[in-house]
């Protein structure tokens, strides 16, 4: 058979499909104003505002304000992308039939997941560049444990992403939007992400077992004290496993 539409079917190599999916999702996320606000603008405001506030109040901290705050702000950035942005984006993908549409394309489901992971990594790198740049401009002087930082970011992303997908897979898009934002606000305020768990008093005892507190503590240990916080990392790993099991059992593609 010849002609314009003569059949010549076939799937692109998986790596090319995953790359296409990851870059597409990244582009869409960066184009969305609300998502950008969550990913970059709010963490920058927290960092700059927090440093200014500590200076003004004249709190006596064991570390310089920018050194004390930056690890938590990076944790906040991971949480906003891996949990809130991912949940909202996936919720609306289900609603608009994007996941259904891709379900009949050559892109397999694990390819779709890998694409989402790729998009998360790309956005997190962009966040690191922007937030790290702002922090350095404010005089940030980290003494990192690179292994501890990497482990915290990877396990934190896995924990929050699996929980974000769980929410997006069971609720309607609007409910996902509302819940993902609410949880983000509650965890930012009371979840020991930016402010160390020790500052919360009794509440801090609970917060270190939350993914937000565990990620915040692991980042502070790694970037302030060049230490690997094994307890916090185990807590994140447990949340990641729980979230993955829940998602695998409940996620509906349509």
């Amino acid at each position: 058979m010849s002609g314009t539409f003569a059949p010549s079917p076939g799937a692109a190599p998986l790596a090319r499909q995953v790359l296409a999916q990851a870059t597409m999702e990244t582009r869409l996320l960066l184009r969305n104003g609300e998502q950008l606000l969550l990913a970059v603008v709010i963490p920058v405001i927290v960092l700059v505002g927090g440093v200014a506030a500590i200076d003004r109040i004249g709190l006596d901290l064991p570390h310089r304000p920018v050194d004390a705050l930056t690890p938590g702000v990076l944790a906040l950035a991971v949480m906003s992308t891996a949990f809130t942005s991912l949940a909202i984006a996936t919720g609306f993908e289900r609603r608009y039939g994007v996941i259904k549409r891709l379900g009949s394309s050559p892109l397999p489901r694990h390819g779709l997941l890998l694409g989402k992971v790729g998009a998360l990594v790309l956005v997190e790198l962009a966040q690191l560049v922007v937030l790290g740049g702002v922090a350095l401009a404010l005089g940030w002087d980290p003494h990192p444990s690179y292994a501890g930082t990497m482990a915290a970011v990877v396990l934190g992303t896995a924990a929050f992403a699996s929980l974000g997908l769980f929410v997006a897979g069971v609720l309607r898009a609007e409910a996902t939007l509302a819940l993902a934002n609410l949880v983000y606000l509650l965890l930012t305020a009371g979840g020991a992400v930016v402010v160390p768990a020790a500052e919360y008093g009794a509440l801090g005892e609970v917060a270190v077992w939350l993914p937000s507190g565990a990620l915040g503590e692991a980042m502070r240990a790694a970037l302030l004290e060049a230490r690997v916080d094994a307890t916090a990392l185990v807590v994140l790993a447990v949340w990641a496993v729980a979230g993955t099991v829940l998602t695998a059992r409940t996620f509906r593609w349509e």
């Binding site: 076939g10 692109a12 090319r16 994007v98």
Partner: peptide, 23 residues
């Protein structure tokens, strides 16, 4: 009905689906 992101441009969506295929 449906099957595309709400913010995606028409041609961008078509190009994306094209990239998932071999030829």
């Amino acid at each position: 009905s449906g099957g595309a992101w709400s913010g995606v441009r028409a041609r961008e969506m078509l190009d994306h689906v094209a990239r998932l295929h071999a030829h």
